[in-house]
Write a protein that binds this DNA or RNA. Structure first.
Length: 428
RNA sequence: GUGCCUGUAGCUCAAUGGCAGAGCACUUGACUGUGGAUCAAGAUGUUGCGGGUUCGAGCCCCGUCAGGCACCCCA
């Protein structure tokens, strides 16, 4: 007990309280996903390094991935994201699947990065994707799912918003500004960083990247123009769809949303909490129409997003939106053990009650009743049973409801029914 | 990889360079067959680790490790 080997940095221990939150999040994600007709799926946790090499981004692959050689000498990666696995699995069965495919998943991912608020090295992520539809309507569906999730957890538009942009629009704007195609990734990075840097530093950085003063002015005007989306036919349709879907108030056009991943080709979006302490995105995604072809499949349009559990967990906690009744009691009933000679009788009683469908734990050894009752109280048990010498002789059981403190003697055969009555009459 | 902050009892935290403490939790009893509330008693420490300064270090200095936060980067 003196020396406890510490948990691996960046991992989180899920004690029952935290596990209850994670399970609740998972169930909420499931409900929202299924409400839109999506099917749950899962990919391997181990993947080949080369799966990510093509399109996941230099930083993610070379610096943030957990990579090791297996005994066969293959370079194996603990998956840092899901989309490449999705592309692979779709490509493998491309001729058998019925499109559009709507899939969702919730599982663990690993990235070796500096731990800080909202960022751990092991995290859980909701992924949801629609493949085989190339329309603003499909994009709108994914944005609406994100908004639907916010509604489901009680986040209001004043608390969390989804910011949308379109890389095609930005590409056209960059073209109009005369930014060479091979410089656009840099400029995209510049755009992405505008809110994070001081204005002076940002401008200096822009000039450093080789932008002319005229281009810088144009870029500034572009980023300040919140109605520029109307120049994009796709975004006009997208916003019309969002209104029809009843989630318009959750969505805003934001020209500074670019997203880092290389494979996005069209609509991109990212959600942030509006006022909270976390400046990281709650979720993010977009359209990636080239990825299937890039991993060796037939070209296939796709759109999707991902949401990590850490940031949303902090946001919901800070806003008091985590359900208060998540604590799962260990059992409804505790059977006490009066004495060594009555231990087997207690075990028989517990077994009978379980047979009747109750959640029952039995104290593991004879102990003072005060200790056993205290244990029942501290662990949240609703009903405690005592089989002492008197009860055993009469073929009865003492049934005590802890909340009210009332106790009655019940015939052995009637205990299950009596306990069930108590549990039903209990005020939650 | 860079910077800032923090490491003291199981937990949360005190302690001018001068006897290491409190609250909560825990154990026992008041209560020999019954939880919560109350009261009483009790147990609990290599002050993260290693050096240095000092008559004397939890406190000051150096190093180191761990954690948190912010950069970097980023779903």
């Amino acid at each position: 007990m003196k020396k406890i080997i510490p948990a691996v940095k960046g991992t989180r221990d899920f004690y029952p309280e935290q596990m209850a939150v994670r399970t609740w999040l998972y169930e909420t994600v499931r409900k929202v996903s299924e409400a839109f007709g999506y099917q749950e799926w899962e990919a391997p946790i181990l993947e080949s390094l080369e799966l990510y090499a093509a399109k996941s981004g230099e930083e993610l692959v070379t610096k943030q991935s957990y990579v090791f050689a297996d005994r066969g000498g293959n370079q194996i990666t603990l998956r840092p994201e899901l989309t490449p696995s999705l592309a692979r699995m779709i490509a493998q069965k491309q001729n058998q699947l019925v499109f559009p495919v709507r899939w969702w998943s919730f599982g663990p991912f690993w990235r070796y990065e500096q731990t800080q608020k909202g960022r751990s090295r092991e995290f859980f992520q909701w992924n949801i994707d629609l493949l085989g539809a190339d329309s603003p309507e499909a994009d709108a569906e994914l944005v609406a799912i994100a908004a639907g999730f916010f509604k489901a957890v009680g986040l209001r538009p004043a608390q969390a918003l989804i910011y949308v942009n379109d890389r095609r629009l930005m590409d056209a704007e960059f073209e109009a500004l005369g930014v060479a195609p091979d410089r656009r990734m840099d400029v995209a990075g510049l755009v992405d960083r505008r809110d994070k840097m001081e204005a002076d530093a940002w401008q200096a950085y822009a000039l450093e990247l080789g932008l002319s003063a005229r281009q810088l002015d144009g870029l500034g005007a572009l980023l300040d123009d919140r109605s520029r989306w109307q120049k994009s036919a796709e975004l006009r349709r997208l916003f019309a769809c969002l209104e029809a879907l009843g989630v318009k108030e959750y969505v805003e056009y934001d020209p500074s949303i670019m997203r880092g991943l290389l494979y996005y080709t069209g609509t991109v979006f990212e959600a942030f909490d509006v006022a909270g302490s976390v400046r990281r995105s709650i979720l993010g995604g977009g359209r990636y129409d080239n990825l299937l072809a890039d991993v060796g499949g037939e070209p296939l349009p796709a759109v999707g997003f991902a949401m990590g559990d850490a940031v949303i967990g902090i946001v919901l906690e800070e806003l008091g939106l985590l359900p208060a009744d998540l604590q799962v009691g260990p059992a409804e009933v505790l059977v006490t053990v009066f004495s060594p000679d009555l231990q087997l009788e207690s075990l028989r009683l517990a077994a009978d009650l379980r047979q009747a469908g109750l959640k029952v734990s039995c104290y593991p050894e004879p102990a003072k009743l005060s200790k056993q009752f205290k244990y029942a109280d501290r662990t949240g048990v609703a009903v405690t049973l005592v089989v002492g010498p008197d009860e055993a002789a009469e073929g009865r059981v003492a049934v005590k409801e802890l909340a009210s403190g009332t106790q009655e003697l019940v015939a052995r055969a009637e205990v299950a029914a009596a306990v069930k009555r108590l549990l039903e009459s209990r005020v939650p």
